[in-house]
């Protein structure tokens, strides 16, 4: 069966003082190939931990990740990553950054050049090919990061707040780009975000997680991602369900935050 299965994952971090943190508890998910899923939740609810487990950087305390019938045991090019910032190699040009994956596999230059050109066209950075990445703005750097990830032809793309450090306008453009790339490439994408709007727009499925222990709180199936492909995202936001869902989720997260605060105060 093709797709990504998250089977009853639990993660406990042992702390140096002898205690432990239950970062995830019994998380199960079934993500079909080509699905776009956004993950939302108050900070500290285990989103990054979950993504790191799927990426293979962390081994879960319990449970298993299975991708295309293969258990995940470590990082692999079939699961590409896009990070918030600082993950590009500043000693390389844009071209070399994008070609990093193919270079690691020993792909001949002529072939990787074609891939690079195609991807830079898609993300709109063709004329910056020979620039060093530190000469680019934050938004352009994230485009490079997307292109670098796509150059490896991963089955699943894992994004941890990829647009978190961008200003509002750049962010909106990048959201459109992510949607277009999703439709064009048909990749499975898991995108973590802090922004409820972004989660609504960039999620066929939207997962709300709750903290302590980190677990799945609620899941939505949403039409907005499909509506947004190739369209103005501001039009999508006018959809009658958009505002109500947004309010519902905001309320949910607000309550969780309140509870965390209350618990913190009660604990003292």
């Amino acid at each position: 069966m093709s797709g990504l299965m998250i089977n009853d994952i639990s993660m406990r971090f042992d702390l140096p003082n002898g205690g432990s943190v239950q970062a995830l508890k019994n998380v199960s998910l079934d993500i079909k190939s080509g699905e776009l899923m956004s993950v939302l939740g108050p900070s500290g609810c285990g989103k990054t931990t979950l993504l790191n487990i799927v990426a293979g950087f962390l081994a879960p305390s319990e449970g298993q990740i299975v991708l295309n019938d293969q258990p995940v045991t470590g990082p692999s090019p079939e699961r590409g990553m896009v990070f918030q910032q600082g993950a590009l190699f500043e000693w390389m040009s844009v071209r070399d950054n994008v070609a990093f994956g193919p270079d690691m596999k020993g792909t001949p230059r002529a072939q990787s050049n074609k891939t690079v050109d195609r991807l830079l066209d898609i993300v709109g950075l063709q004329e910056f090919k020979e620039k060093m990445v530190y000469e680019l703005s934050g938004g352009m750097q994230q485009r490079v990061a997307l292109a670098r990830c796509l150059a490896n032809e991963p089955d699943v793309i894992l994004m941890d707040e990829p647009l978190g450090a961008l200003d509002a306008l750049t962010r909106e453009k990048m959201q459109s780009l992510v949607l277009d790339l999703w439709k064009e490439t048909g990749k499975t994408i898991i995108l973590i975000t802090h922004s409820v709007e972004e989660a609504l727009l960039l999620g066929e499925r939207l997962l709300v997680m709750a903290p302590r222990p980190g677990r799945i709180h609620k899941e939505y199936r949403l039409p907005f991602a499909d509506l947004g492909v190739g369209n103005d995202l501001r039009e999508v936001k006018k959809h009658p369900d958009y505002a109500t869902t947004r309010e519902e989720i905001l309320q949910m997260i607000w309550e969780m935050e309140e509870e965390i605060m209350g618990r913190a105060e009660g604990g003292n």
């Binding site: 990426a55 990082p75 692999s76 600082g86 993950a87 990093f100 490896n152 991963p154």
Partner: peptide, 21 residues
């Protein structure tokens, strides 16, 4: 930065390539 190392591993780099590149 650990994200650079993570990025390189998930782009298929080996330990030697991580060291060198």
């Amino acid at each position: 930065n650990i994200t650079k190392i993570h990025a390189a591993y998930s782009l298929g780099a080996s330990k030697w390539q991580i060291l060198r590149r």
